[in-house]
Design a binder for these strands. Structure first.
Lengths: 349, 349
DNA sequence: CATGGAATCCAAACCGTTTTGAATGGGGGC
DNA sequence: GCCCCCATTCAAAACGGTTTGGATTCCATG
């Protein structure tokens, strides 16, 4: 059932039918009702391809994800971010196009998105530091919003991001306040922008308190359970073992907890742990009570905000860059406590 | 730069240019070369919407995910499955359209996919038992492949699935062979088809060995760490505590491990644990050595297979249902061992 | 020297919408 | 009764490709 068929059925021209269905004022209320009634009697749905072609709007948003090689980690927050964005798109009648493309081919991917006309805007995921993609898409001249930021990017752009630095500064400060003086950082890969900001926050907290930070206590790697476990085991075997650990994600946090237990120690008493909690729906940080003390910021909510921002840029046509900085909450759980006295003593001595 | 512009630039008709670029035989090799050269000199990309409209093929596959309400679990395997499918689509020049839609509106969603003409085929995720969607899409008459199966569906359809029953039967049999007689099952929600099959495998193994299975040892719920932990804690507090636990996913498995440790017991010695491992890239079951004894089947690989199957159905036009049943491997890790003698004794007595 | 056929190329129709520009009819003002 | 304007409606031209059904040229064949 095409528009033409429907028009013939009603004895009207395609023009009038189209206008009736799209709410234009030049059509009488009587015929509009007649058309609408017939439309859903016949179950008519406009063909999006044809409409897109005519209007120039694709009614779709593209998400470009870097294709992770076999051994690289698939971004674990992606599913939740997309779920949040998808909610917004669905309400606004937009589709979501996802393309997974190797790092080297990203340039072409954006250009194709534009020229193929399959999307009206793009969400950029997982920016690296000084990510070249930003300049690239800016040149292509298609609306986009970045989830995260790319330090050292020279062009202005729109983004939604969590205040990574502030979150980790607060977490670190909290541990310092509890008397901890040797704190380890288990961070994500430091080619990712968020990881760099988190380390900066970690260091800034030390500096603000005049406590030196030890480079040998800072680790970065793929955020797996194994990574958390192995680094913690190594740390606890050292004579100058830290009394607290901050982890960039809950997954290594679980490995940290395991290593602490294996060492015969207790989390929250012998070693304090703070994780960052993306509030992933499939990995909740406990139920009524949290499992870990955590900085929490919902990545699903970030997805919703980024989607709203992008749709607003597209529909308003106002491309002046806008930004949305989310603050993480600091949630207290059983995984932190005052620094053990023994450690504090030896440290002070 | 449109096809017409390019044609004018070359002094050729749009017909010839189109044919040259699409490899039709009716164009001389000389002009083809000239056209191709000009095309990528000008950076010409055909507009997909126009092409789709003309050819009737959308060159896109739709994935429909149930919109999880705030409290429901977002399917944790989704990200990896999609990554696998995306690889295949990218190679074949297809786009991936994802739409997240509430359970109640799924019917309309499929119909719209068809009539809007935005996709050539559909992948159906997370089928429930007797899932009504299967009949629905069959009626809509658009190629589709189901990831998983829906028991009690009366119409034949194409699917890619893991042999859930066999995997859990093997895991259970292995525990029985180790002397365990009271085995608990920590399963996913039993409105999901895979969960039902896994329970059947669990029960079949008992029956094959003539060991009774106790309904009070079977649990199903959202597969969170907390769920694994809480049920295990309750189990271990019972006088007739099980000596082994099978978990439907690694995430509750981690909670199971935590509860075992909290009870002062050791996993693999006092309580054996087998998990099912979807081989998720961001939640590997250990590194060189596994953390858990596990039934393993890569969900990313399933995504690749489903995508290949669907593309083949679409391009061949042969819609006779095809199926692909993947067998899980049983991987031995440190989380299992012979049943403790004490338990075995009291059981025998 | 026609004739047929292969090899190339092109004009025009088509895909299903929206949108432009014009036509039609009815009613109000004079 | 005439004119103008407004409210409706429509025919036709986009949008950017593909595809159908010829045209044209060139060469070999009889």
């Amino acid at each position: 059932m095409t528009l033409k068929d429907l028009a013939k059925e009603l004895g009207l021209s395609p023009t009038t039918v189209s206008r009736a269905l799209n709410g234009f004022p030049e059509v009488s209320e009587a015929t509009r009702k007649r058309v609408v009634a017939a439309a859903d009697a016949y179950g008519y749905r406009p063909n999006m391809r044809a409409r897109s072609l005519a209007t120039g709007r694709a009614m779709a948003i593209g998400h470009v994800l870097p294709l992770s090689s076999e051994h690289e980690m698939m971004n674990p927050v992606f599913a939740d971010f997309v779920a949040g964005a998808g909610e917004i798109y669905a309400k606004a009648g937009y589709d979501m196009l996802i393309s997974i493309v190797a790092e080297a081919e990203q340039a072409r991917a954006y250009e194709e998105f534009k020229h193929k006309g399959s999307v009206d805007g793009i969400i950029v995921h997982a920016p690296r530091m000084g990510d070249p993609r930003i300049n690239l898409i800016t040149e292509v001249d298609i609306p986009f919003v970045v989830h995260g930021r790319a330090s050292q990017s020279d062009v202005p752009y729109s983004w939604v991001d969590m205040n990574n630095q502030r979150a980790f500064q607060r977490a670190t400060t909290h541990l310092l306040d509890l008397g901890h003086r040797r704190i380890a950082l288990v961070n994500g890969l430091e080619n990712m922008d968020f990881a760099i900001r988190r380390r900066r926050g970690f260091e800034a907290a030390h500096e603000a308190r005049g406590v030196p930070h030890d480079d040998s206590l800072k680790f970065s790697g793929e955020m797996t359970e194994q990574f958390g476990h192995d680094t913690t085991r190594a740390l606890l075997a050292r004579p100058d073992a830290p009394t607290a650990i901050i982890s960039s994600s809950m997954i290594p946090g679980i490995g940290i907890r395991r290593a602490i237990r294996e060492a015969g120690l207790e989390m929250g008493r012998d070693v304090s742990v703070i994780i960052h909690d993306d509030d992933l729906s499939y990995l909740p940080n406990g139920g009524d009570e949290p499992l870990f003390t955590a900085t929490r910021s919902s990545v699903r909510d970030a997805g919703r905000r980024a989607a709203r921002m992008l749709l607003d840029i597209i529909t308003s046509g106002d491309t002046t860059p806008r930004t949305d900085l989310l603050e993480a909450e600091l949630i207290l759980g059983p995984s932190t406590g005052p620094a053990p006295v023994a450690a504090r003593m030896t440290d002070i001595s």
